[in-house]
């Protein structure tokens, strides 16, 4: 219909309404991030930080052979986690949307998947310790079953434990957006595809996956940024044997090397943003969300 614009005569209202959010976002996100960027150009003499404009911090980070290793390790974690969470998230959403017929049951099961989101990540990580440890449940089960004689050491304090914990923590970030985009698929489309003679596999490949792309992309952004921003899981679950960019950055912070830490942070955020942009290139999330 003819334009339905803001309520007449009150053009100020949205500015007043958004002011608190804008203020907090600016003071607690915008300016702090600028501070970090600024800090990455400052000088550090081993004792204190001085205002300056130097590329030395970047030079130090980029010339260190450790940096590449850290980035590769971080990307490896991100890739493995992304792969597993996508497969699990897609399968679970597919089951919920297309195989659970009762709407109430569907929503109930969906909530069951999301409730852990509202509990502590630290505790959820800790909860793997009694399971994976040398004397943990998994090892004792394997020994009892006669599959192994000595307990496996690689279960806890290893890359395996790190990725497993990531999957445990972050799969629901995949389920929620995929579930949402799948739930929007008009069931008639599936019927039409079946009418046209498509097999279930063809329907999955040609109809459901393309229409779930937005959800997968959104979930991927969540998972990639969460994994790449973590320092705690990698530190604890690898038993201090592995490191990621952020955990190395955390070490720098602990030693008060703020400018170097900031330079690493700027590089990491650049890489993360590039990856997010790449994902957005594949799927125009904004256009699809507006649907």
């Amino acid at each position: 219909m003819s334009g339905r614009s803001s309520p007449s005569g009150r053009p100020l209202a949205p500015y007043l309404q958004v002011a608190p959010l804008a203020f907090i976002m600016l003071t607690m996100v915008g300016i702090p991030l600028v501070t970090v960027v600024m800090l990455s150009f400052w000088e550090f003499d081993g004792i204190a930080v001085y205002p300056a404009f130097t590329w030395a911090n970047y030079a130090e980070v980029l010339s260190s052979p450790v940096t590449l290793t850290l980035f590769l390790a971080t990307l490896k974690y991100a890739f493995l986690t992304l792969l597993a969470t996508t497969l699990i998230g897609f399968t679970c959403s597919y089951f919920l949307v297309f195989h659970v017929r009762n709407l109430k049951v569907q929503i109930g099961l969906f909530l069951l998947c999301t409730i852990p989101f509202w509990t502590s990540n630290v505790i959820r990580m800790v909860s793997w310790i009694p399971f994976l440890g040398r004397e943990g449940l998994f090892n004792s089960m394997l020994i009892k079953a006669g599959l192994i004689e000595q307990p496996l050491d690689i279960l806890l304090y290893s890359d395996f434990a790190v990725v497993l914990t990531y999957i445990h923590l972050f799969t629901l970030f995949m389920i929620v957006p995929i579930f949402n985009s799948m739930a929007k698929i008009n069931p008639n489309l599936i019927e039409a595809a079946r009418d046209a003679g498509a097999t279930p596999a063809q329907i999955l490949w040609n109809v459901i996956i393309p229409l779930s792309k937005t959800g997968i992309a959104l979930g991927s952004i969540f998972v990639v940024t969460l994994v790449m921003g973590d320092f705690f899981v990698v530190r604890v679950m690898s038993g201090g044997q592995s490191a990621s960019v952020v955990s190395a950055m955390k070490n720098n912070i602990d030693q008060l090397y703020y400018p170097v830490a900031s330079a690493m942070a700027v590089l990491l955020v650049t890489v993360v943003l590039l990856m997010v942009t790449a994902i957005l290139r594949v799927v125009d999330i904004r256009a699809e969300l507006a649907r």
């Binding site: 607690m28 996100v29 702090p32 501070t35 970090v36 921003g229 990491l268 955020v269 997010v276």
Partner: peptide
């Protein structure tokens, strides 16, 4: 999207 620890660093600094 940014790592939480990084934002913490920014706010504290």
């Amino acid at each position: 999207v940014v790592p939480g620890i990084l934002l913490g660093l920014g706010i504290s600094q």
